[in-house]
Amino acid sequence: MICSWNRATLTALLLTLFATQAQAASVSGSASFQGQAPAAEPIKMEADPSCKALHADGIAADDVIVNANGTLKNVFVYVKEGLSGKYEAPKTPVTLDQKGCMYTPKVLGVMAGQPIEIINSDSTLHNVHALPKNSPQFNLGMPLQGMKIKKTLAKPEVMVKVKCDVHPWMASYIGVLDHPFYAVTGEDGSFEIKDLPAGTYVIEAWHEKYGTQTQSITIDDSGKSDVAFQFGV
């Protein structure tokens, strides 16, 4: 009796494990940059001495950052088509910081309805001006250091620009989706989208300057799929 119960439990456990592994697929890859990397233009921060003081050696524009390994940073990669079902937005907020008179991160993803915590880490004032087309725009003053505001973007949209009109060089982009399958390339240009159900998908990569690219993929039984995007001039 005990033995047959153990066997049944073990079988159930194995089946569950197998099923989970078959469904927990991931898409990984990188965004490479082809051609000569454009010279980064220096940002003139004279308009606000407190910003300039934070970058004594100067700071370059962050619209195009080509990594040392020839890949592109700040590419937003997401599942554009192929998903079914509904996904609940997390309650945990995503942080968008104003630090050194720049946005950190430059590119981020959230789920529609997920809180975005906007922080002013600078000693100067900022305004946070979000320009979505599908959700209501907002423009909020953040005059004090350490000030935090929580906002949500109600509807999916790729991408929503956020800018500071006080410091016009500041711009951030938020990918708002109705699912959690997105990633942003970092210092090594790679990305990984985890826990994707098996199926065929259209994956899109977006870059502020170089626009969008799409690829169609089918996640096989191994549960892994590689995608390579190539941007450049």
């Binding site: 308009a47 606000d48 910003c51 003053g141 005059p143 009109d165 410091h167």
Partner: peptide, 27 residues
Amino acid sequence: STESGLSVPDWPLSYGQFFPPMVGGVR
């Protein structure tokens, strides 16, 4: 021209003050 029309998001006060720090688009 400087696209700073929304650098002060409130009205009639500016950042809740009569005279905010004159930086960037606020100037």
